[in-house]
């Protein structure tokens, strides 16, 4: 038997965040398809924005799930999301243009099965478990697909597995120089996995506020996007990678300063080089 210890009071309802995150993330992934339509790579940065949208939604799902005191660390939820999401994402990349939609559907099925197993076989009996794990799997798949699209410029299987190495001016095809073959997908996995669990893990406590946590989620997303943009320099033209780096840096700086302001607003006091204040009764 689990007891719900915290509730979301005020703020944006969870279903609104879920709908906004899902729609924004899928649309942003599809906007990277403009690369194919226009024959450039300049639209790759939309993949990073898709990841930011999904991470923001994911942080709130974790808040929703962990408010039931699931008896485990918050980080495990992030790993769970990406462990189930990576299966859906990899399988879905075979479906060409339909990949993002297939990823969402497939991840939903995998998440629902995992949720059913947790609740009914492992007897966890947490009311939001099936819904949350379904959401987490979709989030994992979308973040991975977003980073894949951002780093390699495409969300389809063939471009993700085919790269080329230049030896003495000759360009040779090489599986190992691709997004999946070089295991950059493992880096994307960890970037997303830590980014999605960190906002709630960092902001949990009696004075949790929704806007502060969601700002931190965006900050984590943009921070991950900066490093993903640097890695994309291998696969994309310099100008395309530069656009990604600039978008990520601007987004990160804005959300980071906003997060510090919100922390200042919520903190009991903001002291610099002061001793521990004396409290009454201690």
């Amino acid at each position: 038997m689990t007891v719900k210890v915290e509730v979301v009071e005020g703020g944006i309802p969870h279903n609104t965040i879920m709908a906004a995150g899902l729609v924004a993330s899928v649309i942003f992934i599809y906007l990277t398809y403009a690369n194919v339509l226009t024959g450039t790579q300049l639209f790759s940065f939309f993949g990073g924005l898709a990841a930011v949208a999904a991470i923001t939604w994911g942080s709130h799902t974790i808040k929703h799930l962990c408010s039931y005191g699931i008896g485990t660390g918050v980080p495990s939820a992030g790993m769970m999301a990406f462990g189930s999401g990576v299966i859906a994402m990899l399988f879905a990349t075979k479906f060409g243009v339909a990949s993002p939609i297939v990823a969402v559907v497939l991840a939903a099925i995998i998440g629902a099965v995992l949720g059913f197993l947790s609740n009914n076989v492992l007897n966890m009996r947490i009311p939001v478990m099936i819904q949350s794990l379904t959401e987490m799997a979709i989030i994992g798949a979308l973040v991975l697909m977003g980073f894949a699209a951002m780093i390699s410029g495409s969300f389809e299987f063939n471009p993700l597995t085919a790269g080329s190495v230049t030896i003495l001016g000759l360009s040779l095809p090489s599986y190992q120089a691709s997004f999946i073959g070089s295991s950059l997908i493992a880096v994307a996995f960890m970037l997303g996995g830590i980014a999605v669990q960190h906002p709630f893990n960092a902001c949990l406590g009696p004075n949790w506020t929704q806007d502060r946590m969601l700002t931190l989620a965006q900050e984590c997303g943009f921070l991950s996007m900066i490093t993903a943009a640097v890695m994309s320099m291998v696969f994309l033209s310099f100008s395309a990678a530069l656009v990604s780096v600039i978008v990520a840096l601007v987004g990160w700086y804005y959300t980071y300063t906003k997060y510090i302001e919100l922390s200042k607003r919520d903190a009991a006091a903001w002291l610099d080089a002061k001793p521990i204040p004396e409290l009454e009764g201690h």
């Binding site: 004075n207 009991a268 006091a269 002291l271």
Partner: peptide
């Protein structure tokens, strides 16, 4: 960056107990 956001987040969420953020 993660370290700073983690400290600020955890301490700001404990403001009920009077724990200040030490810059």
């Amino acid at each position: 960056v993660y370290a700073t956001t983690a400290y600020l987040g955890r301490i700001a969420s404990l403001s009920k107990f009077g724990q200040p953020v030490f810059i």
